[in-house]
Design a protein around this nucleic acid. Structure first.
Length: 425
DNA sequence: TCTGGGGTCCTAGGACCC
DNA sequence: TCTGGGGTCCTAGGACCC
């Protein structure tokens, strides 16, 4: 049995989501900013053509945006998350094995396809997603995930492929000349450090890496680098993760929208983040054995710097918000130093373990207390799911939250909020 | 006074991903 | 005024045990 991996990637996903609900954004430069309106994290083709780079700080480009009529949006994750779900549901109809890899990417695995059949199927998938969701996608097919990613890039970048490229339908010589045109930096799994290292040894393209000695790569780039090399040779090492494994760490962190100096404000922020972590723990039916809190000043600014983290083993694994808030605030008291301007705080839960199902009849008193507390958490989660995040929250997390992130240019939550539905007429 | 080896578990740090 | 957030995996090294 052999299968062909398929990578489906949404083109300029966040921008495409904005365009679905706002036709005036077609054919003009559009960018979407990160949380806190910090830097550029999505660009339309027109914005790319203007030379706007991924990750550029937005405040350095404000003049430029105005001058070139660039339409700027804060990120709207309620919208993008919902659109992503629609795209994935559409794709799932074409293939039983699917791994949703990120908000805008998914792998599919086709078993024993007939030669050449997948290009046509890819075209059909692409047209269907476009028609049902409004989102344009590109599709790459190959014998390994790493090669499917490469095929996907070509499908997206070169219009002659009409959005679909199947490496299994090409000759070895054709694949080779394609790998000649891929820089090592653009290979999935090769980052900045390894790029610099490889180039210093004269390895510049995917073909060079494919043909490098395996044991040398193993030594220099660990076993993950070896897997990349083997996958470039067409030997699958990275399997499809059909069922998403439980997360091993869950965190929540944010930069502040305004400067924060007092312990009071930090307490509110940390309590809010830890509430979020607790929700995620319960959503995965896990409890945390350890909790970490960190705070830091703005490393980009020329001000006195302080950054520190502390963690604690919890008395018992828990997903109970008040217990976690108490632990986090205890850590914060010890971390806090007055006299600094804080920019960011974060909370991370680790040593997660599954919430064990309990038999009600066998409860001893402490477990009964535990069950009662978790029942309250369930009520809270249901209310927040139904009426929106933050409907019920702990007072420790603050009310007006002046430290909240900035989102000056957010579009409506067109699809997930009754009050923000687009009006036709 | 000086001297082992083998194994496990945990954490920190680095590299990577989107 | 102003530079994102949330994860994974691998390895080295320390602590501890026999």
């Amino acid at each position: 049995m052999s299968h062909v991996f398929c990578m489906v990637n949404c083109n300029n996903f966040y921008v495409s989501c904005e365009r679905v609900f706002n036709p005036t954004l077609q054919h003009v430069p559009v960018v979407v900013l990160s949380n806190n309106d910090g830097c550029v994290i999505a660009r339309s083709n027109e914005a790319k053509a203007l030379g706007i780079a991924m990750g550029e700080p937005a405040f350095l480009r404000e003049q430029f945006f105005r001058k070139h009529g660039v339409r700027v949006f804060s990120s709207n994750y309620a919208l993008y998350g919902d659109m992503s779900r629609r795209v994935m549901q559409t794709l799932a109809q074409f293939c039983p094995s699917m791994e949703v890899y990120s908000i805008d990417e998914t792998f599919l695995a086709f078993e024993n396809p007939r030669p050449g059949e997948l290009t046509a199927l890819g075209r059909q998938m692409r047209a269907t997603v476009r028609q049902w969701t409004g989102i344009p996608v590109s599709i790459g097919l190959a014998p390994t995930k790493t090669l499917a990613k490469i095929a996907n890039r070509f499908a997206k970048k070169h219009p002659q492929y009409e959005g679909v490229l199947d490496l299994t339908a090409m000759t070895p010589a054709e694949v080779e000349s394609l790998l000649d045109r891929v820089e090592v930096a653009d290979i999935w799994g090769v980052g900045r450090k390894h790029t610099r290292m490889l180039k210093s040894f004269g390895i510049h393209t995917a073909r060079h890496l494919r043909d490098a000695p395996a044991d040398w790569v193993r030594k220099r780039m660990t076993v993950t680098g070896l897997h990349t090399l083997l996958e470039l040779r067409g030997r699958p090492c990275i399997e499809l993760e059909d069922v998403a494994p439980d997360k091993k760490a869950i965190c929540a962190s944010r930069s502040f929208g305004k400067s924060v100096t007092t312990l009071f404000e930090l307490r509110e922020a940390v309590a809010a983040y830890v509430s979020r972590v607790a929700e995620k723990l319960r959503a995965q039916q896990s409890r945390a054995g350890r909790l970490q809190v960190y705070i830091l000043t703005n490393p980009h600014k020329d001000v006195p710097q302080y950054s520190n983290a502390m963690q604690v083993a919890l008395p018992r694994p828990t997903a109970h918000t008040p217990e976690l808030i108490a632990a986090a605030l205890g850590l914060l008291e010890r971390l806090y130093r007055p006299g600094y301007v804080y920019k960011k705080a974060g909370v991370m839960a680790t040593q997660l373990e599954p919430e064990t199902p309990r038999q009600l009849s066998l409860l001893d008193p402490p477990e009964e207390e535990d069950a009662r507390r978790m029942a309250l958490m369930t009520v809270l989660d249901r209310a927040n799911a139904k009426w929106g995040r933050g409907t019920l929250s702990y007072a420790a997390a603050g009310l007006d939250r002046p430290w909240r992130m900035r989102q000056a240019s957010k579009s409506p939550r067109y699809t997930t909020c009754w009050g923000e539905l687009p009006v036709v007429g």
